[in-house]
Nucleic acid binder design. Structure first.
Lengths: 357, 357
DNA sequence: TTGAAAGCGCTACCAA
DNA sequence: TTGGTAGCGCTTTCAA
């Protein structure tokens, strides 16, 4: 080291290619190719020779050249706003698992909720001739969104890349994009009904955005629970807020200050619920003795909070697996254009009857 | 639908290529190419024509063809055991962020701690001619591991792919693989010293594996703290256990049953600490009044536990960003073969002086 | 069972 | 400013 001029990694000049391998192995390029495509029409001895040559040259087939002639990429792109939270992890793992089973590559892209980044990535994945692009997770579902997705369908369709909506509802008529989602409305419904059945009447809803594809329907479900119980929906108090621990905290703190007399909080998501819990505590109140609290998602830690959180479980892993299968398997895709996986209420210790008035 | 025979996505037969675009735009292939490589030597009017043609054909450049001639992939592969936990999220986000800044693609692969999968992915990434492969996170650092990494260096080196160790120590002499890690030993040291300073003497260490690249040094640090304080290292009680909430729970439950008289627990990671907390509670003891507890990593939720957890903060985001920069920038790489980022003790409510004997 | 050669879609070089 | 064209590394006919 230090002295020589030709230092660096092995094969510094040009990388070995299949022609080099063929030459060293004293066979034709075609034969060498057959060996690496594990075709069976090669005599074992010949195969050995080729393999040895490859080994000695540090040869690795070039996936780009293969994709070029073979006609396709073998990548599944997973497009999400952020890669945070256990829900993300389960979902992504599910996709990754099935993707690997199909012998494809899993590619993760984060948009940070930036439309431009999203568009760039979709285009990029088209250029890569990805097998599929999964648009994952909650989003604001306005007309702009519809139009954007339609654009993606067209752009990707032209290069043979399949678009899939994962954890989102289908885009309305026209575009026929497969959509794998879960029952947000039902989850919101059962959480709220649970509280109503316990005797709560004035419930504070925190963290819901009516236009968002996940929390919107959850809110609708909550409303429906009031309706079905024959109770005035006006008793469902709405605290506007976003999707973080801090904002959940802030929202509840404010609601408490306004003294609107709620005895329970339905949070739009577990993270929000954690923030709510903080705020309730800080106000010197107890959960569930003074105020009941529910979350949504059932991320692992919420069972370790004090008290353990009552929440709605979402089958993230399965969502991922099903999405990937639909993305990669044409038969499944034809069969399942729209799948809605069930959600399930998990009652733990954060909900109880309201304190006696 | 149903009747026609030529249905399906647009351009059903063959996808448009640059030649088609050139033909429609009535220019040469070379000119069309220049437009998409945004080279400046094209008259605006011509550029327009080409762009319009591309648009009308739904043309998207083929990244594989480009990589083939351009000589390289633009992918950064992130190889980790699992994509769980906020630490993973921060780390991966950091890598992704910088990767995007360099105009590269971020690719995530999970090995599930399976050597075979790891090897397959490394090879696959070599075939993709990835710009870099990051081996991320804790691992058992035996001689097998050393040998394996050496193999990767050779395999990837031959195709021009850079290998980087991220959150792991360098492999010992010989292979010169860049390594970006953080101060595990120092973290273990300061957590333990903190407990010692509070007056604890018999401390239970949970979740450490001496051979593992992260918890191993953390344990060494803990021992060192005893040594530096002039205290018998034998008072650091070792509870063998793995890396999950459940195993932390089990370990502490057992230790409690054995009545070894410890007044504090150092957990090898926050997740383990959560399990310890569970066990301590179940035994009817309080944290920190009866038993103090520290974690490691500082994942977001631990500040919401009751009590908030004293732990060691790891700069995961920066770890990711630095790793990516070293991976992608030859100058940085030459300068920083080995980086150790600092860790920091965060004292919260789970630690206090031991109860009076 | 093996080999020769024609592309896959693109860029980059050299000429015009 | 534009066009012709030789590859990039590979697979895959078609022949031998």
């Amino acid at each position: 080291m230090g002295g020589g001029s030709s230092g660096g990694s092995p094969g510094r000049g040009s990388r070995a290619n299949i022609r080099d391998v063929a030459r060293v192995a004293e066979v034709s390029v075609a034969t060498a190719s057959r060996v690496f495509s594990d075709s069976s029409l090669v005599r074992p001895a010949t195969r050995e020779k080729v393999l040895r040559a490859a080994e000695s040259l540090g040869y690795l087939p070039n996936a780009h050249a293969r994709a070029l002639v073979g006609g396709g990429g073998h990548t599944v792109a997973f497009l999400t706003a952020e890669m945070v939270g256990p829900s993300f992890a389960d979902l992504a793992s599910g996709v990754e698992q099935v993707t690997a089973e199909y012998g494809h590559l899993f590619m993760l892209c984060t948009t940070h909720d930036d439309v431009e980044r999203e568009q760039r990535y979709v285009r990029l994945m088209g250029e890569q001739r990805a097998a599929a692009v999964l648009l994952v997770g909650a989003t604001e579902a306005g007309p702009d969104y519809q139009r954007r997705v339609l654009g993606y369908v067209k752009e990707l369709g032209a290069v043979g890349t399949q678009l899939i909506l994962c954890g989102r509802p289908p885009v309305s008529p026209g575009a026929d994009v497969p959509s794998i989602e879960y029952d947000n409305l039902g989850g919101g419904y059962s959480a709220t009904r649970h509280l109503l059945e316990l005797g709560h009447r004035r419930i504070l809803a925190v963290g819901f955005s009516p236009l968002q594809t996940t929390t919107g329907p959850r809110l609708t479900g909550a409303r429906q629970a009031y309706g079905d119980a024959g109770l005035p929906v006006d008793d469902l108090l709405l605290a506007e807020s976003c999707f973080s621990i801090e904002e959940g905290d802030r929202a509840v703190t404010q609601a408490l200050a306004e003294d609107t007399g709620f005895t329970a909080v339905v949070a739009a998501a577990d993270h929000v619920a954690i923030g709510c819990l903080r705020a309730i505590r800080r106000a010197g109140l107890r959960v569930p003795e003074d105020i009941s609290l529910t979350g949504f998602d059932d991320i692992p830690v919420v069972s370790d909070l004090t008290p353990a959180l009552t929440t709605v479980r979402v089958p993230f892993g399965e969502l991922g697996r099903v999405s990937a299968r639909v993305a990669l398997d044409e038969v499944e895709r034809r069969r399942y254009r729209h799948v809605v996986l069930p959600t399930e209420l998990v009652v733990r210790a954060s909900t109880a009857p309201p304190p006696p008035a």
